[in-house]
Design a protein around this nucleic acid. Sequence first.
DNA 1: ATCAAGCATGTAACTAGTTTCATTGATGTG
DNA 2: CACATCAATGAAACTAGTTACATGCTTGAT
Lengths: 329, 329
Amino acid sequence: MAEKSIKKRANLRDVAKASGVSVATVSRVLNTPELVTETTRQAVQAAIEALHFVPSAAARSINSGRSHVIGALVPTLDNAIFSRFLGALEAKLSAHGLSLVVATTDGDPDIEAQKAQRLINIGAEALIVSGITHSPEFDQLITRTRIPTVATSFYEADYRYPTIGYDNAAASRKALEFLIGKGHQDIAVFHGPTEHHDRMRARLSGLHGQGELHTYETEITLAGAGKAIDALFQSSPHITAILCLSDVLALGALFGLQRRNIQVPNDISLIGIDDLPSSASAFPSITTIHLPAFEMGIRTADAVANWVERQIIPEPHLIDTTLIVRQST
Amino acid sequence: MAEKSIKKRANLRDVAKASGVSVATVSRVLNTPELVTETTRQAVQAAIEALHFVPSAAARSINSGRSHVIGALVPTLDNAIFSRFLGALEAKLSAHGLSLVVATTDGDPDIEAQKAQRLINIGAEALIVSGITHSPEFDQLITRTRIPTVATSFYEADYRYPTIGYDNAAASRKALEFLIGKGHQDIAVFHGPTEHHDRMRARLSGLHGQGELHTYETEITLAGAGKAIDALFQSSPHITAILCLSDVLALGALFGLQRRNIQVPNDISLIGIDDLPSSASAFPSITTIHLPAFEMGIRTADAVANWVERQIIPEPHLIDTTLIVRQST
DNA sequence: ATCAAGCATGTAACTAGTTTCATTGATGTG
DNA sequence: CACATCAATGAAACTAGTTACATGCTTGAT
């Protein structure tokens, strides 16, 4: 009395048997229906419906050698700059017929290596990572498996993986020079954690040799910026401008200053880096360095698609950043 | 002279041949190394290294019947509420040994159906969708393939898929009642597009029968809220409070009001829904209805993991929302 | 010394598709 | 009427793993 509903998913053979044709014909109905007679096609389709047949993705990709899956490793989804990047990436990959698996690393190179392994285990055809700080395990994994890998958010011509990103040091330098050009001399710098965080370090390094700066490290959240404001006013309240190495910090700083009833830009000028939508809409709107995260997503998607589809290894690509002057300076 | 480097990826048979053992032994080295002698294990490992052997994910999952991939369909990544949800979802799924494929739908049910098909094609074991508005094609797809599917951001006990989410109508009602309780009578409502957007519609429906409201539809961005503020001041500038059916709109409205030099909460009170980090940090901080997107992500991950791993179909789950009173009211 | 037990390993049959090559039958042409 | 051509289909050999079962060998107990 073994009910046939107890049986698991129907496969090609089941459909073939049910419709009285060979497995080859069923396969043709699915992939090249124009090679099959109308009559048999309908019979096979009927059997497919009746048996609730769904072709196995695994069996297909074992033959094609393709999974159509791309893996992306990002520190977090909680920062709008990564969301924008991933949004563009997903949209363009999808246009190329590829799907995006997202893994977050919390900025930890060890977690990155683990999750990279998992992405490879599920059959990802290529990996996309953020920045250039990676664990030796990660690098070994990429070398061993030879999986196509692109590093983003960072530009370095001769890096071990092709990079698609901006010059983080130049971006922060651009911001600092703008402030100095405006006559500011006492400048505070708000930045995020530097451990494992190459982009933040690069942005900090872009500020070297430009006179003395008061730096404050905090987590990259609105609340973190608020704490930095508190710390700032306990130590050197004589500054005239704050350079935030992330727009999240800039917006948080703006709120923190407003809370203390300090006028921006009259009392203190404020500049950020990223150009998140919030910087354009805030009041006062926030001067910032535009990082084209959207464009980076599109370009990365194209580069990866060309790599996995046509074996074209992408050239490193430097994406321009531009100063957007708004009301906060 | 056919170079062996021309040959493609090594497989189990190649490794077996190179190390002089059978394929079964190689498989054991990979999966149950304790069953293999130290000596042979090392020989096999050496061959694996030499040949750059990477096991095929497809071949593995054809045997196990598992892909360890879960697909999520969200309208956009550009709204922090979805980023938070996905962040929590990914983290918890990862703890269950599952990977997350993200597909964005732009809120379009047809795109959703297409992308759902693609997720199934790549072998996703389950789908997670937002809301309860889906195209007939989508529903047919789910019925036909019988793929485990969970609907989030929405609670409805008897929906065709298990839902894990909040009562959107109750959330907005809670916000409105709070304003009314505070004595407000002339209230504007800012909301996002309602087409295909069940959550927004539900939130609007929660406001019915509570007196006359001035509603303004705009896109859910900071800039969109700015436009709504403009529209508001062209029509009914006598309102005393604005109820925003999304915190993004609330923050945008705050900026818009500040730009017009209108004091919040003295001139106009402001309340939102979502409780994004920005609402807590803004100045003035914004009263809102807390939607536990993070908790929703965790719960959804657990539900889906139990479904695909132990065939336990999740019960619909209503997640509580809470009013967070801050400075803007 | 003999037999059972147990470990390490191999053989071959699975998993579920695609694809090549062969076969069949119908049609068209000389 | 004979033969070539072509469309539709099938048989079987692939893709790359896992695993049930069989085998050979070593070891320990009687």
